[in-house]
Simulated assay, not measured.
Amino acid sequence: SRVGSVERKRGTRDDGTLDVVRQVLHLLGPLDARQVAGFLDAPVQDVRARWPRDAVPVDVEGSARDLLEEDLPGLATAARPDGDRVVRLLGPYDLFLQSRDRETLVPDAARRRDLWPVLGRPGAVMVDGEVVGTWRPRARGRRLGLDLDPWVPWDRSTARAVEQEHERLAAFRGLEPS
């Protein structure tokens, strides 16, 4: 396969479902070999040598990436045709936030510094797959508060959905929301 001017030998050492390259591409894709290598802290050449045979090229905002063929249907149906918004509070170390493709996830450099500081990471407020702010828990006795930093104005439905996520998080921790 050819992506840009880089030619890859596909599948020369694919270990199937036990291959870490395949698993990173499945869990965090679409990615390119450089991004997978960065996540695994491995040489790009080794990652390319293990590139899965069934990886297919996709375009991510003008950048060539690959995705496992079996994951294409999930990507195609990720948009919610019913119009319901999906709002989630992701913890600071949620797998979604661990990808090395931070520039795609959060294009603004200042916002990336807010979400991934050296110490004391906040969580991310996600709306339909986009990071729209950060959150930090504030437990006081039996109550759990959230410090929210919206990066964009939230409409009422988003604010209500964040409140519902706050209630779910508090219940999970055995606390009351405040």
Rank of each mutant, 00 (worst) to 15 (best):
G91T: 07
L68A: 03
L68P: 05
E103N: 10
S63R: 15
A78M: 06
P92V: 02
V56L: 06
V86D: 05
D94G: 00
A79S: 10
L67F: 11
L75T: 07
E69M: 08
E103D: 13
L68S: 04
E61F: 14
D66T: 02
E69V: 07
L90N: 01
D84G: 07
G91M: 04
A76V: 07
L95S: 12
V87P: 03
F96T: 11
S99P: 03
V60C: 11
L89W: 02
L72T: 12
A78C: 03
E103K: 13
G74Y: 12
R100A: 10
D84R: 15
L67A: 14
V60H: 14
V86E: 08
D94C: 00
P73Q: 09
L75D: 04
S63V: 14
S99C: 02
L89A: 02
L72P: 08
D59I: 13
R80L: 08
L97K: 00
R88S: 07
P73C: 08
T77Y: 06
D94R: 00
L90G: 01
T104D: 13
R80I: 06
D82M: 05
A76F: 05
R80M: 07
P92Y: 08
L97I: 01
R102C: 00
V86R: 14
L89D: 03
D66E: 05
A78W: 06
G74S: 08
G74R: 09
G83F: 01
A76L: 13
E69P: 01
L89N: 02
P57Y: 06
R88A: 10
P73K: 11
R88D: 06
D71F: 09
R85V: 03
R65A: 03
V56I: 08
Q98I: 01
L95H: 09
P81I: 10
A79T: 12
L75R: 14
E69F: 11
A79F: 07
R88K: 11
E103W: 12
L95K: 07
D101M: 01
S63P: 08
R85S: 05
R65Q: 09
D101N: 06
Y93Q: 12
V58Q: 07
E61I: 11
T104V: 12
D84S: 10
V58N: 07
Y93V: 11
R102V: 02
L75P: 06
V56N: 02
P73L: 10
Y93F: 14
P81A: 09
L75S: 11
L68E: 06
D71Q: 12
R65S: 01
L97V: 01
D59P: 10
A55Y: 03
L75C: 07
E61H: 15
E103H: 13
L89V: 03
A55S: 15
A55I: 02
R65Y: 05
S99W: 00
A76N: 04
Y93T: 12
V87F: 04
E69W: 07
E61N: 15
R85N: 02
E69Q: 12
P57T: 11
L72G: 06
L90P: 02
V56Y: 03
A79H: 09
V58D: 10
E69I: 05
T104C: 09
